[in-house]
Design a protein around this nucleic acid. Structure first.
Lengths: 185, 185
DNA sequence: GTCTATATGTTGATAGAC
DNA sequence: GTCTATCAACATATAGAC
């Protein structure tokens, strides 16, 4: 018999998957009920509103990003961390081609909602940018903010193009480009 | 008294504006009716469905992009065309910060709809990429496709970041970066 | 061609039995 | 805590008078 928190986790998991694949507005609570196996009416026991649910999805995504960065920081050299970051991104390229970046596409969609949860979504981008900027700072670069912006905009732009062109090679080439750029830095 | 085509144009204009500012799914036909001044029931005389309307919005955006490129091609040198492209983008930075890129954000949203109109949206990205790639080819570069991808992903990624961070300086710095990169190319 | 009134379906959210 | 039944609001789309 599943514990309460199991159901909550399953709901967040299903919602996160569907928000990525189908979008926030296009996903109904009924869809989440079906995918998670939790009956429709029971969802509102765990999450008062749909916005509360997406807020929890964003929160879990934030934690995933933070533990990802902690994992990368086990590598001693910032350059190796950034290289590994690209390798990890390569591993999810097919999902990105099919559904777009799980962070970027959700941010863009929620930004149009003009609700507090939009800022929470934007926070995910900020976390990414801050960490990457920190790597360039640790490398002793004089303009770490600029290099961080360049790195993150290249990644998010590549994801958007790969999704639009439906071509994983776009991501491969983006990664090759960033790797050689980093090497010559 | 407005001609029929005037109403149609006004509808496409209002729909395009609202799809950009609020998003496709978040914009109801009633919203478009109010913004355009065309009564709700009359919209369906011009556009059978909401999808037909967004298809026309995409078509008008396509024509706008094509005439933009025709304008840029009046400049004899490809590098000057690309520089002017950046200058034009700078002129719309505040809208991008507020609402995201009118092409990129709509593409990402419609891509999740899995309808024929999604491919039409993706076509806008393809047109942009093709033209930019052509400029690098004209410059005699050996890898124009790669340079085109780099250019366009940088632009779309910068737009996404500027929207998330709500900071026009992100765009300014992206433009400076691309300009100096182009100069040294 | 124009516009009011409305049909029809879906949504997020709730009530209340168990 | 769980789940069925349902509400009220809103969506797209249509019917039909003018």
């Amino acid at each position: 018999m599943p514990r309460t928190s199991d159901k909550k986790e399953k709901l967040v998991e299903s919602a996160g998957k569907l928000f990525h694949q189908v979008g926030f507005n296009q996903t109904s609570i009924a869809d989440i009920a079906e995918d998670s196996g939790v009956p429709l009416g029971n969802i509102h026991y765990y999450f008062k509103t749909k916005v509360d649910l997406v807020a929890e999805v964003l929160n879990s995504r934030k934690e995933a990003i933070e533990s990802w960065f902690e994992e990368l920081e086990k590598l001693p050299k910032p350059k190796d961390r950034l290289i590994k970051m690209l390798g990890d991104l390569e591993g999810m390229k097919h999902k990105v081609v099919k559904y777009g970046c799980p962070v970027g596409s959700l941010c863009q969609e929620l930004d149009k909602e003009r609700m507090p949860v939009s800022r929470q979504a934007d926070g995910l981008i900020k976390i990414q940018l801050k960490w990457v900027t920190g790597q360039f700072r640790e490398l002793g670069k004089q303009n770490p903010e600029d290099l961080g912006l360049q790195w993150m905009s290249s990644i998010h732009g590549t994801a958007l193009l790969a999704n639009a062109l439906k071509d994983p090679k776009v991501i491969d080439r983006g990664i090759v480009r960033l790797k050689s750029w980093l090497k010559e830095l």
